[in-house]
Amino acid sequence: MADQQQAPGPRVRVRGKERKNPTPKAGRNLPAATAVGLAMLFAVLGGLLFMPLAFVLIVTVFAIFGVWEVFRALEASGTRLPIIPAMTGTVAMPLAAYFGGPESLLFALLLSSVAVLLWRSLEGAAGSARSIYAGVFTLAWVPFLISFAVLPLHASGGVTPIGPWPGGVVPVGAWQIGTLLLLVVSNDTFGYLVGASLGKHPMAPKISPKKSWEGFGGSIAGAVLVGVLASIFVLGQPWWFGAALAVGMVAAATAGDLAESMVKRELGIKDMGNGLPGHGGVMDRLDSIVFASPVAFMIFSAGAGG
């Protein structure tokens, strides 16, 4: 999630002349970040609308890289989680959610947690408690939560083993996921724009000092606008459903971003990785989505039930 308050970048001197540094103070190269973000968004939406199993595999790949980054960060701090059972569970959970629904997802989390416990128990007692806690925490944080982004496909009965959607008809679950992603991007974009220009009051200075209440307000305003339009023209729901969904997404995305910031501060690192130019690591992009996905699924389920 983008920082919601950024001062203009520092000036540097080149051959006796002063020019503006293209990278803002927060360390984010905005052109690179925009290009990478759009490329990922188009890849995800392309799979979602035209090749659903490809979308599930993309989600799985993101989860794998996210878990690997957490593993490396924890290892650098002296905690080594059992990576083999953790990665096995990471691959299994999105597929379980797609083909089996919520019950299968919960069962996959349970089996993965037991596998972590047994695997680590066989390696000896030294440091086992921290290792097991770290493994179960990582499974619940990354692959379990992000798998909720797949559940609407199963809930709407749109599951197809391979190939495009049968008859070329995109199910409502796919449009729900697309709306979720659009709202997370809107939260990020509007929060960054408003916070960068107007942000003066930090939300949580001890956790993420660059996030401001002004940026948070910009996120809500922009996301509500996008949510209302998406609700009416994409989901076929009343306008107030889109407004409620948008507020829920902004709250969840902000909580996810702050939660990852707390983890990074505890580990003494700035980014979880450096694989995405302008973004840091994969987890620095997933932090909002992993919290927003279960909230969106619950809101969509409540809306369908109503």
Rank of each mutant, 00 (worst) to 15 (best):
A33K: 02
T34V: 13
T34N: 13
A35E: 03
A35H: 11
A35N: 09
A35F: 06
G37H: 11
G37C: 12
L38R: 02
L38I: 12
L38G: 02
L38A: 08
M40T: 10
L41E: 14
L41Y: 15
A43P: 03
V44E: 08
L45C: 14
G46V: 09
G47C: 10
G47R: 08
L48C: 10
L48R: 10
L49N: 01
F50M: 09
F50L: 09
M51K: 08
M51H: 15
P52K: 11
P52Y: 08
L53H: 12
L53C: 07
A54S: 06
V56F: 10
V56Y: 07
I58S: 12
I58A: 14
I58C: 04
V61A: 14
F62S: 05
A63F: 01
A63Q: 08
I64P: 09
F65K: 08
G66N: 08
W68C: 01
E69Q: 07
E69T: 00
V70E: 14
V70Y: 15
F71I: 11
R72D: 07
A73Q: 05
L74P: 06
E75K: 13
A76R: 11
S77R: 11
G78E: 04
T79Q: 04
R80K: 13
L81W: 01
P82N: 04
P82Y: 00
P82E: 00
P82L: 01
I83H: 04
I83R: 15
I83W: 03
I84T: 15
P85R: 07
P85A: 08
A86H: 07
A86P: 01
M87K: 13
G89W: 10
G89P: 12
G89T: 02
G89K: 02
T90I: 01
A92E: 01
M93F: 05
A97S: 06
A97R: 09
F99R: 05
G100F: 07
G101N: 05
G101Y: 05
P102S: 05
E103A: 14
S104H: 08
S104E: 12
S104G: 15
S104R: 06
F107S: 09
A108I: 13
A108Q: 11
L110M: 07
L110C: 02
L111S: 10
L111F: 15
S112V: 00
S112A: 02
S113H: 04
V114L: 14
V114P: 00
A115V: 12
V116L: 04
W119K: 00
R120I: 00
S121K: 11
S121I: 02
S121V: 09
L122I: 06
E123F: 02
G124Y: 06
A126F: 10
A126R: 15
A126S: 07
G127W: 06
G127F: 04
R130N: 13
I132E: 01
Y133T: 12
G135A: 13
G135T: 13
G135K: 10
V136K: 04
F137Y: 08
F137P: 00
T138I: 03
L139Y: 07
L139N: 12
L139H: 10
L139S: 11
L139E: 12
